[in-house]
């Protein structure tokens, strides 16, 4: 049903129907922005990625063929733009990548709510790119297994492997250090 509704709105948006454009933006921009923000750990860059993603979407609308869900396609474009930016960061700042050890919480640390949230966000941001993307799509945004695998262009088995490794790393950093105090 959502698929048909998407197609109808895409057709109308391609013809410049303002209501359809607004609907697509309101429905999909939060997910795209959230994915980019988690991946890049930088709100400003994430907004740039969101704008670029939608610009590409508008260009693609007139010839749109529903081989994939619009949402899947949009998130894949956003993710690839994030990968590009992360690669450029690594090239320009090879010595300034975050140290994974810095992300772990010391056992004695007592954190307030905002510090805890900051620590979780930093830990997710410090995961390897594909693990971070898999976790964001599944655990934080609620994408289905099949849709997340399609966005990441991996098999379902590979997606599960990424998720398991991501959760193990985060558990070690966020929970085990604190509970061992």
């Amino acid at each position: 049903m959502a698929f048909t509704s998407d197609l109808d709105q895409i057709t109308r948006a391609a013809a410049g129907d303002p209501a359809a454009v607004q609907s697509l933006v309101h429905r999909y921009s939060p997910g795209v922005l959230a994915l980019a923000t988690r991946m890049l750990s930088d709100r400003s860059e994430a907004e740039d990625v969101t704008q670029e993603t939608f610009l590409r979407a508008w260009k693609a609308l007139p010839g749109w063929e529903p081989r994939a869900k619009f949402s899947t396609w949009l998130h894949r474009v956003a993710l690839n733009l994030c990968y590009d930016r992360l690669r450029k960061r690594k090239e320009s700042l090879p010595g300034e990548l975050p140290d994974m050890a810095d992300m772990a919480l010391a056992p004695h640390e007592v954190l307030d709510q905002s510090e805890r949230v900051g620590a979780i966000e930093r830990a997710i941001g410090a995961l390897p790119e594909r693990q971070s993307a898999a976790l964001t799509l599944c655990a934080l945004q609620g994408h289905s297994q099949a849709e997340a695998a399609e966005i990441l262009e991996v098999s379902v088995e590979a997606l599960e492997s990424l998720l398991a490794r991501a959760r193990r790393t985060l558990r070690a950093q966020l929970l085990e250090g604190r509970t061992s105090a």
């Binding site: 410049g16 607004q22 969101t50 609308l61 949230v117």
Partner: peptide, 22 residues
């Protein structure tokens, strides 16, 4: 505990403004 990440009004407007015109 992680807060929702929502687009600002300015970003939403910019996205809509970049769309095809009727």
């Amino acid at each position: 505990q992680l807060p929702d990440i929502l687009p600002s009004a300015a970003l939403t407007e910019a996205l809509i403004a970049s769309a095809p015109k009727p």
